[in-house]
Amino acid sequence: MTDNERAARNKKIAHTIMWIVLLILFICFIFPFLMVIINVFKDKSDITRDPLSLIGATKGFILTNFPNAMKKMNFWTVFGNSLIVTTCSTILTIIVSSMAGFVIVRNSKWKFCTLMFSLMIASMVIPFQVLMVPLVSVYGGTLGVLNHRITLILMHVGFSVSMAMFMFHGAIKTNIPIDLEEAATIDGCNRWQTYWKVVFPLLKPTVATVAIINAMAYWNDYLLPSLVLTKKELYTIPIATQAFYGTYSTDLGLIMAALLLAMLPILILYIFLQKFIVAGVTSGAVKG
């Protein structure tokens, strides 16, 4: 056996070992999901008896947990609320912050633009906990606009505009040549037309990144929605899950179904858009 062959063989063995290590780690990572999946088809008494068995000992394989949990959790309403809030907030965030990034990057000599830019960057370190009490005080007490989806949507946008603006700012600065805009102006576009017809279409990769990061954050957000939406018919998935757990914590079968229902939409989306989500999150994290 030559040295080359031996090296190749050693490498192959090493890779096989690493592959097995990865597989074990992978199983550890998805273990909680597996637990939910095997127990969702069992009756609560069977779950209490043996949470590890694949099929319930007394009642066997049952599907009734799903319709029961869906009914009690008001799943379609809650799902609809989450969908509306997430979609509207994401679209608005993209429109509002990309335009802000554009005007700030192209007029960096205006003092007001630099001031707003620095203020937005500095504000990114403020955690939500510092803002929640005054937020509830102003919008709940003084203005009384809580319990409307639109309030939550606008607040979501307000909280993410600085980060998203920063990412669009960077993208426009490095990727959009100013000559392009000058050409558009000469061809008779005003600033508004230049932006929407020339600049915005070129920002697609950043739009995707911002959309993915923010949509995930909005979908999973609990604290802000729980403060803004206190009426049952406006609940989003995380609030509904929390409320449901409080009411039915003894019926483990229902809980399993509710947890799985809460996770399914985003997991299904992930199966189809996995490549984009991983790429989007990576570029968002590295730039931000």
Partner: peptide, 28 residues
């Protein structure tokens, strides 16, 4: 011209940002 340009593009973002971050922070 500057004010008009700024408000046209960054107006909504600035207003929302001030309304939910800066105002609550100062009020806090």
């Amino acid at each position: 011209y500057k004010i008009k340009q700024y408000l046209m593009f960054a107006g909504p973002g600035t207003v929302l940002f001030l309304a939910v971050v800066i105002v609550p922070f100062l009020y806090g």
